[in-house]
Amino acid sequence: MKPAPFAYKKARTLDEAMALLGGQPDARLLAGGQSLIAGLNMRLSAPSLLIDINGIAGLDGIALKDGKVEIAALTRYAAAERSDIIAKHAPLIARALPHIGHVAIRNRGTLGGSLAYADPAAELPACLLALDGEVEATGPKGKRSIKAVDFFKGLFETALRPDEILTALRLPAAGKDSRVGFAELARRHGDYAMVGLAASARAAGKGLADVRLAYFGVGATAVRAKKAEAALEKSDVEAAVAALDLDPPDDVQATGATKKHLAGVLLRRVAQQLMEAA
């Protein structure tokens, strides 16, 4: 379990990191390293260069800007857990954070890293999808925003171009009528979930509107369950469960059929969270 040989450069500025990235197409960015280093040690990937971005000033921090919560890419999970802005304005993220790995992992792991890695069983991509958030990509030609729905392309695959760096994520700040729900089932606390569900909605009278259900651990990316969302907007939880159009693949923990059953159980529990708050 020793990685294949690679070169290592510590970038001091974003421009320097981008220049290095542009010059070496198979280079990988090193942020928290919680997934990357394990992958290197198992020789699942063998980049010729690691560009350490941990020393770049200004790439972390959490701010409330123009009705959006902006989280810079290098922000550690642990910092987000302690953030009043997250607690108040991004309650879905606050609910998801304790489920991510263990304390040691959350001390190092970064929010930007999780999104860029795009593990289909990770919590954060699903939260971004449920909240209709976006990522900020910085490349040689400047910055661009990419909506969550356009960002996650496939298994560990995103819309980031090889010369771009994910520099921030932005989420709409929660309003008075915002409702969120989160639940996941992992056989041990801190494991990747067998199935998880991140949800957001808007309270509308006694019911819910703009329901967004983002499942994770059920396919190549986090996925919305749109038919179930529509049923939930009619306050019919059982119809929502029946309408779940997921087709999770089998894995070593469970068959797809079991995962689909569990997705239904999670939907009932998360629906209750959404409605309780309403």
Binding site: T255, A257, H261
Partner: peptide
């Protein structure tokens, strides 16, 4: 005794 085996014993999957 995995969750799946227990659900099967209960006839849920």
């Amino acid at each position: 005794f995995t969750p799946e085996k227990i659900l099967r014993a209960l006839g849920k999957v």
